[in-house]
Design a protein around this nucleic acid. Structure first.
Lengths: 118, 118
DNA sequence: CGGCTATACAACCAAGCAGTTGTGCAAACA
DNA sequence: TGTTTGCACAACTGCTTGGTTGTATAGCCG
C-alpha cells in the first residue's frame, strides 16, 4: 500500500463514500459547520470530522478558522483532475471501441489478411 | 459502513488505486490476460486477480471465457456515471464560486471594511 | 471566574483491503 | 498419460477505515 498516495487516488477515494459525497453536495449550497453537517447523517460529530479530514487531505475542501467554528468550503480544482482522468480515458475507450469496430469491418471486407507487423 | 454499496461508490473506490487505474489504461489498448496484466506490476498473479475482481464488481470491466484464459475487456458505461456525477458537481461548484465572487465584489463596492491588521 | 458551544484528539473496535503463500483445477501440449 | 500453463480459491498478515466513546481545548456568554 502506497505510503504516499497520489492526488488522484486521494480524490477518488474521498469520492468513494456516500456520506462524503453527500457532504460535498451539501457544501455546494454554501459553507457549513461540522455540527450542521453532522445533523442529517445519523452519526457523531467526530465521525463527520474524520470525513472532513479525508476531504481536506484530498483537497476537495478547505477550512477556514472563524472564532470557534471552522466552516468548510469547497475546492473545485481537485475535481478537475478527476474529471480530466475520466474524460481522457472515456475518450480512449470510445476510440478503442470505434477502432475495434473498424478493424472488424476491415477484416470482413478483406476476406483474409496477413499480419506482418513491423 | 455500507453493507451494500451503491454503484457510484464502487466505481470511485475502484478508481482510487493506481494499480487498478494502470490496469484500466493498459486494457484501453486491448484485451489482456491476467498474467499479461500482472507482468509490469511487480506483484503476484493472485493480487492482480483480486484487483480485477474489484474492477469487475464495479462493472468497469467484463471478462470473457475463452479456453483456459479469461481476458478482460473494458466497460465504459460505468465511467459515464462517475463522469456524470463529477460534471454535475463541478458545475454546481463553479456556479457557487461565481456567486461568491459576485457577493464579495458587492461587499467591496460598499466600502465597508473594518480590518484591524497589524 | 464558571459554564456553554464548537471542534479536535486519543483510544479502541470491527471490518475491509492489499498483499502474500499455498493449493487446486481445467485446458493445452508433449 | 503426465506436465505445463492460466487462473481462482482459501487462509493468513498488516494496514487502513469508518465508526464509537471519552476527554481536551478554544472561544463566547453571563
Amino acid at each position: 500500500m502506497p505510503v504516499v498516495e497520489d492526488d488522484l487516488s486521494l480524490v477518488f477515494a474521498a469520492l468513494a463514500d456516500p456520506t462524503r459525497r453527500a457532504i460535498l453536495e451539501r457544501l455546494a449550497s454554501g459553507e457549513a459547520t461540522v455540527n450542521q453537517l453532522a445533523e442529517p447523517f445519523a452519526m457523531t460529530q467526530q465521525a463527520v470530522s474524520k470525513h472532513l479530514k479525508v476531504l481536506e487531505r484530498a483537497r476537495l475542501i478547505t477550512r477556514t478558522r472563524t472564532a470557534q467554528s471552522r466552516p468548510c468550503v469547497l475546492e473545485a480544482e481537485r475535481l478537475e483532475e478527476a474529471a480530466g482522468w475520466i474524460a481522457r480515458h472515456r475518450q480512449m475507450w470510445a476510440d478503442r471501441h470505434d477502432r475495434l469496430a473498424e478493424h472488424l469491418a476491415a477484416l470482413r471486407s478483406h476476406d483474409h489478411d496477413e499480419e506482418t507487423d513491423g
